[in-house]
Amino acid sequence: MAYSDKVLDHYNNPRNVGSFSKEDPDIGTGVVGAPECGDVMKLQLKINDRGVIEDARFKTFGCGSAIASSSYVTELVKGKHIDEAIAIKNTVIVKELNLPPVKIHCSVLAEDAIKAAIGDWKKRKGVAQADDPKGEPSRAATGSGE
């Protein structure tokens, strides 16, 4: 099966590979896996107090499509508010990278990683700022379908 040019580009020149310190309170970490193929994806988001994603890093061990999906996602979420990022659907990734049907689960994995990372950040901030009046997770929470 041939990979699309965009997948190959992300695979050969992955953007934002690496990790942030898990101790940094502004970092949300999401680790998700695809048990069908054994791929593991870690996505870390640096989120400021206004809920805007300032930076992103990923480490993915899996096939080219999984690596490309997470690489693309780090570019996609940067500068977005978490409410916007959490609503990102895997179909956006499928379309951008032109993924074939057998690789759609890779894009689902990347979507799940965003949700897990933001969830982790919220959890950590929720503990740290329990009485934050502008915390309004209800709307974002509805975005976690599937």
């Binding site: 680790v31 998700v32 896996g33 695809a34 048990p35 069908e36 593991v40 870690k42 480490k59 061990f61 689960h105 994995l109 799940d112 897990a116």
Partner: peptide
């Protein structure tokens, strides 16, 4: 298999990242 099953067991994820 994949339904409600996206969480990699933490110890295993730890091992994966260490070994990689």
């Amino acid at each position: 298999l994949a339904e409600n099953n996206k969480q990699v067991p933490p110890e295993l994820a730890e091992t994966v990242f260490e070994v990689q």
